[in-house]
Amino acid sequence: MATSKSAKFDIKTYGGFKAITMLCLLVLYAPLVVVTIYSFNASVSLTNWEGISLRWYVDVFTGPESEKFKIAALNSFVIAIIAATVSTMIATLAATAMIRGGKFKLRTVSFGLISLPLMVPEIVTAVATLIFFNSIGFDRGLMTIILAHTAFCIPFAYLPISARMQGVEDTYEQAALDLYATKRQAFTKILVPLMMPGIISGFILAFIVSLDDFIITNFVKGAGVETLPTAIFGSVKQGMKPNIMAISTMLLGVSVLMVTISYFVSKSDNTK
């Protein structure tokens, strides 16, 4: 940090920008921090603070709604793991073609297709997917959620993977080819290991996107099938209860943990 004396003449510094940044962080974090704190509230009421307690966490696991949340959590994780795994594999192959496949006619079209889920408003994707499954007579359930999430997660997995691949110089693969490796060997023995940080971040981001998705899931889930977000939404609609805050805090913790892992993995540069 510049001292006040030098800051006076620093062309880069604008008064107030730091304060706004702090305000920005406050706005971003205040709701999360407040919910985390109140999830430990001993009171049955939402807002009266009656001391620290884990009762709402216990309630999540043993209370009247615990069975519903357990099934929803299991569904959420199964869907997220399958969708993230498949979309990461698809994205890795696609990135190899896009970044290591030279120039070709369908390149721009392919990129447009891959990023389409990011450009179309999510609710439109949700409506379209629902209509599609309905039109081909595909019964809604876990499977429809997994399929919809897989497609929706592809761009999220693709972006860090392709960014990473652009960062890996192609001389490593050339050196492998020069040393008698086939292209397949150059891919599996050299490119994929070097891509690992990008692939892991891609997987984690896809996992979080799937785990967090509400809108698409809400449309394509069948009756009776719930994921954590739809279960939470259902409960909130009936009125906010403290156990929602406990479950939200846990889910929040999972997301923050995974993003933190992703951050450190992508920061570790194994080409240096």
Binding site: M89, A94, G101, D170
Partner: peptide, 27 residues
């Protein structure tokens, strides 16, 4: 979409893109 850095896998690119094309076209 980022520039292509090389064409090392240009023979395979159709097969590499196929899963993405199929998935996104259908879904």
């Amino acid at each position: 979409g980022g520039s292509a850095t090389t064409d090392t896998y240009k023979e395979a690119r159709t097969w590499l893109l196929m899963p993405a094309w199929v998935t996104l076209s259908i879904l």
